[in-house]
């Protein structure tokens, strides 16, 4: 993730710049597909995210191969047939919190936010908007959001044999605890 690396490098090299940045490298992004035939859940526990508390710029990135499934075969099919993770190793969200001025980073509490931006998955970029919540507690920020993505929108083809096992809309849950970046 070149951009995250650049932001963080700037943050550590320019003093006074860093205090506006919050960062994590073990955020949890999971997805859930529910059909009468089968429920499928996968978790990625190593998402990287950076939030700029001043501008509201928010960025997430995950490696597709780092999603953990219960069943080995599902994990294999997900990587090889659906998201083609060797060809498209990463999924990235680049966007912003539109109402960042409503969030008081110096005061603990829950702040409802509106997030919008572009998500890139399987080589396809789509605009998304979702409500979310930022929870401030001291120097930590919890970011939570739930939204739906459709595999079709990202040119992910699902063979007809398994079509009834995979939902048309996949629920994505983001739960990441970001910490203030210190020099």
């Amino acid at each position: 993730m070149k951009t995250i690396t650049t932001i963080l490098l700037m943050a550590v090299t320019l003093s006074g710049f860093a205090q506006d940045k919050y960062f994590t490298r073990n955020g949890n992004i999971s997805f859930f597909s529910s059909t009468p035939v089968e429920d499928i859940k996968a978790d990625n526990f190593n998402a990287t995210a950076v939030l700029d508390s001043k501008t509201g710029a928010f960025e997430f990135s995950v490696l597709m191969k780092s999603f953990n499934f219960k069943k080995a075969l599902m994990q294999e099919h997900f990587n090889e047939n659906y998201v083609e993770s060797s060809k498209f190793p990463k999924s990235v969200f680049k966007g912003s919190i539109e109402n960042i001025s409503d969030v008081d980073f110096s005061k603990d509490g829950e702040y409802p936010v509106a997030v919008s931006g572009e998500i890139t998955l399987h080589g396809v970029t789509k605009q998304i908007t979702t409500p979310g919540v930022l929870t401030v507690s001291g120097e930590k920020i919890n970011s939570n959001a739930v939204f739906k993505l459709s595999p079709e929108d990202f040119d992910i083809e699902i063979p007809s044999v398994v079509r009834d096992k995979i939902a048309n809309e996949i629920e994505v849950t983001v739960a990441a605890e970001l910490e203030a970046l210190k020099r």
Partner: peptide, 13 residues
């Protein structure tokens, strides 16, 4: 560990 790629850090799962 199983290397899953690079995302700022090199990742092993």
């Amino acid at each position: 560990g199983l290397c899953t790629g690079i995302n700022s850090d090199v990742e092993l799962n």
